[in-house]
Structures are given as C-alpha cells and as structure tokens.
C-alpha cells in the first residue's frame, strides 16, 4: 500500500461518522421524531413557565423561568450525549456483532469511539437548535453577546460529561449492561445540578451537594452568560472548576477504559454481550 493510499486516524474517525450517518439516515422517521420531541418539550416548558411566572427564587435571572429551564434542558441533552454515547456505541457494536471485526482492524478503539461521537454530537446539536428555535418563537430571549462566553463553558461541560461517559463505556465493556455512571450522572445533572429549577429551593443541607456535580457549574456559567449578560469574570470561575473536573477525570477515565478493554480482551469476552 503506497502512502497516498493509506488512511489517517482522522479519515478513520470520519469513516465511522459516515457509517453512523448512513445508518441514521436509514431510519429517517426516528430523526423527525427526535426533533418533534424537542419541540413538544419546549412547548411544555413554556406552559409551565406561564404557571410559575416571575418566582422570587429566580431573582438573579430576572424571574425568567422559561429561559432558565430551556438552558437546563439544553445542558441535560449534552449531558445525555457525553454520558451515554460512548457506552451506547460499544453496546451497539457488541449487539450487532461488529465489535470483534472492528478490533480485528488495525484501527485503535479510541479512534472508533471518537468517530462514534460525531453523529450523536450533530444530533444533539440539531436537538438544541430545535430547542432554540421553538424557544425564541415562544418568546424566549437570550443575550446574544453572552453566546460567546457560554460556548467555552458548554465545551468544558461536555468534556467533563465525556470523561464520565468514557468511565461508563469501560464499565459496559466489562459488564455489558447495568452501567451505574451514566445513570448517576444523568440523575445528578437533572436533579442535583438544578437543570429545571434553581438549587436554592433545596433544603439547606442538600444545597452543598449540588456543588459536587459538574453540571452545576455548567448551568451556572451558561445561565449567567445568556440570561444575565454576566461578564468574563463571573463565567471564568465556573469554567475554571469545569476545567479542573475535566483535567482530573479525563486521564482517569481513559486509563480505566484501557484497563477494562485489556481485561475483557484477555478474557475473550470483548465481543460478547
């Protein structure tokens, strides 16, 4: 094989993404349903917001529950993406029986997993766009200048979720089912981080627990940027905490995943489910 006929890691990653896109497009109705679900959810949030107009507890956000909850819903979407997409990719390959053939190729599993993140990321992006468009049509208002500050916070939040998602994928490699990381991560994000309500409504003893959940800082930073027009100083604090989470968790999760793959490969159970 000449050098010009060889594929790079990036080309292999995009081959995985192209494969996923082709499979996804063979289920077009599922794509439409996902967008519709997003729109229906936004409409639901809108009517809930009319019920809880201008609650005092949302003072820092000018009492705008609709926008507050929309940001929460968007972050939960990205949490689900980061926490679940790696383990889902592994499970799917095991289920359809292709994992062993992928491992039989000279491509690293990490490259395959990185490629398998692309289409779910695009899908979540599409879902978030649907959230945004439906939200704006229903009267949501965001600070456009805050978008630039919110994006790095979102990226760091996704990186933290991905680190937990890689832990989760490692667990799935070993146990095939019953992964606790995604469950804990999603529930903690939905409940403890305050995605749909402010943590100020928690009893005092529970509130400090929220600060142990990375999503808390993501939600705080993004809401500050988009809803209150907060400056770099406020958002940078949240970004720093998220960066610390990501730096601590990513190497740990990658090492754990590699260990799980090694154990499973040695046991001959990598391709089974």
């Amino acid at each position: 094989m000449s050098a010009s006929e060889q594929s790079s890691s990036a080309a292999r990653m995009f081959a995985v993404a192209r494969r996923d896109a082709a499979v996804l497009l063979s289920y077009q109705f599922a794509l439409l349903v996902r967008v519709l679900q997003a729109v229906v959810f936004v409409v639901t949030l809108y009517f809930i917001s009319r019920l809880v107009q201008r609650p005092a507890v949302l003072g820092p956000y000018q009492g705008r529950y609709f926008e507050f909850a929309l940001v929460g819903a968007i972050l939960v979407s990205f949490a689900t993406l980061g926490l679940g997409s790696f383990s889902q990719a592994i499970s799917e390959e095991q289920r359809v029986g292709t994992l062993e053939m992928l491992l039989g190729s000279p491509t690293r599993l990490a490259v395959v997993l990185a490629g398998a993140f692309v289409v779910p990321l695009a899908l979540t992006g599409l879902e978030v766009v649907a959230y945004g468009i439906a939200g704006v049509l229903l009267g949501a208002h965001f600070s456009l200048s805050g978008v630039l500050l919110a994006l790095p916070v979102l990226a760091l939040t996704i990186a933290t979720f991905c680190a937990m998602g890689i832990l989760s994928a490692g667990f799935i490699v070993l146990t095939k089912r019953g992964d606790p990381f995604a469950l804990i991560g999603t529930q903690a994000t939905t409940l403890l981080a305050g995605s749909l309500f402010p943590v100020a409504v928690f009893p005092g003893w529970l509130q400090p627990l929220s600060k142990a959940v990375p999503a808390y800082y993501g939600l705080h930073g993004i809401r500050a940027a988009l809803l209150t027009g907060a400056g770099l100083r406020v958002v940078a604090g949240d970004a720093a905490v998220l960066a610390a989470f990501a730096v601590a968790l990513l190497p740990l999760s990658i090492a754990f995943f590699a260990w799980c793959v090694r154990v499973s490969r040695n046991a001959g159970t990598l391709g089974t489910y």
Partner: peptide, 30 residues
C-alpha cells in the same frame, strides 16, 4: 479474517458501504 458470525456486518448499510468502511479502518484511503 473471516469469523463464523454473519452478524459482523452492518445490516443497515449496503455491501459497498460496508466494504468502504472496513477498508478505511483497515488503513486504505477513501
């Protein structure tokens, strides 16, 4: 390598798409 499990292919892709995908993973350019 051919393994006895016929599930080792992507059934929602065409034969050509399967081969192109595995070809790139095996190291061939697109």
């Amino acid at each position: 390598l051919v393994l006895p499990d016929e599930r080792g292919l992507y059934w929602r892709l065409t034969g050509r798409q399967n081969l192109e995908f595995f070809g790139v993973l095996a190291g061939l350019s697109r």
